[in-house]
């Protein structure tokens, strides 16, 4: 499974014609439809519309979280934030065990991220640079697991976790996700190109053992990819819903589980639910505002490699 970037098949690459060599052609065609084209007003209008649509539900979460339920459910919905935000946040905090939920979400997401980075970098390095028997079909097997829906594993996982005495415990959410096939593949793709064999050989000649090579050679080279993988893994772990919802309960939830159960109660107060939604979304949104450029770049580089 190699994804090479498309390259022109023409064997001879012609130098671009000097400017003005084709005066009868409008210059905008020569720029191509690609990145050099300047966006016209239409592009900005279209992007603004999509951007508005992207932000509106988030803005409206804030509006609803700062109103009373009656105002939220009125036949003309409110459009401006009200003054009940702090009160609603407090009620949501108490009703849905949110303090514990936030702590749990942080524990779960960081341990999954740390473990994924550790295992995927090691495995990615092995698959990229070490020669061993069965490397090809092992990698294929790892990739093949990507197509298996998580639903297939929830019943046996649930039984295993109960058997281990981890029912309702954070372990039941953390341990099944310590390593991801996508992560192994991602790190492998990156290291194949980024880590030259010469570097490893040089370290070997200097007497470094395998452990030393990983620490002093592989990790520094792998750092940019690890940043990307770390971000993707953290977002996914933070927002994961299906398995945590089955495995955990209201006494010991992650944020998403707490939120789901807050809304599943018999008479959920919608403004309180929205306050909970706000609490669960804000941390990631803050990260997005601070590191937007890095995250965008990460997803785009991951897309090309993956």
């Amino acid at each position: 499974m190699t994804m090479t970037s498309p390259t022109p098949t023409a064997p001879v690459k012609l130098a671009p014609p000097p400017k003005g060599s084709a005066p009868h052609r409008p210059s905008r065609f020569r720029m191509g439809a690609g990145q050099q084209m300047k966006g016209g007003p239409f592009a900005y209008i279209a992007l603004a519309v999509v951007g508005f649509g992207s932000l509106l539900p988030l803005y409206w979460t804030l509006v609803a979280a700062s109103r009373t339920q009656d105002e939220v459910l009125a036949s003309t919905p409110p459009f401006l934030p009200g003054g009940k935000l702090v009160e609603n946040l407090q009620t949501a905090w108490e009703q849905a065990n949110l303090g514990k939920a936030i702590l749990n979400s942080i524990i779960v997401s960081s341990s999954i991220t740390a473990a994924t980075l550790f295992f995927c970098t090691l495995a990615g390095y092995a698959f990229a640079k070490m020669r061993f028997r069965g490397r090809g079909w092992l990698m294929t097997a790892v990739i093949a697991t990507l197509t298996i829906p998580p639903q297939l594993s929830v019943v046996p996982l649930f039984m295993m976790m109960s058997g281990l005495g981890w029912g309702g415990q954070l372990e039941s959410v953390i341990f099944p996700t310590l390593v991801s096939a996508f992560g192994v593949f991602f790190m492998r793709q990156y290291l194949i190109e980024a880590l030259p064999y010469e570097l490893i050989e040089a370290a070997k000649i200097d007497g470094a053992n395998n452990f030393r090579i990983v620490v002093s050679v592989v990790l520094p080279v792998a750092r940019p990819a690890m940043m990307v993988l770390g971000m993707l893994t953290f977002v996914q772990a933070w927002n994961d819903f299906f398995w945590p919802y089955l495995a955990l309960n209201q006494q010991n939830p992650t944020l998403q589980v707490a939120l789901g159960q807050l809304s599943a109660s018999y008479t959920p107060d919608q403004s309180i639910v929205m306050a909970g939604a706000l609490i669960s979304t804000l941390p990631l949104l803050a990260v997005f505002v601070l590191f937007g450029k890095k995250i965008v770049g990460g997803i785009m580089s991951g897309a090309v490699k993956g």
């Binding site: 300047k38 966006g39 900005y44 992207s54 977002v235 939120l259 979304t281 937007g292």
Partner: peptide, 27 residues
Amino acid sequence: YRLRASTFWRTIILTPYATSVASAALV
């Protein structure tokens, strides 16, 4: 296209990705 504030547009368009299923579904 070559855009002013291209990172801004990209980040805005990506914000729904930062929202969890639960929050999104509830809103």
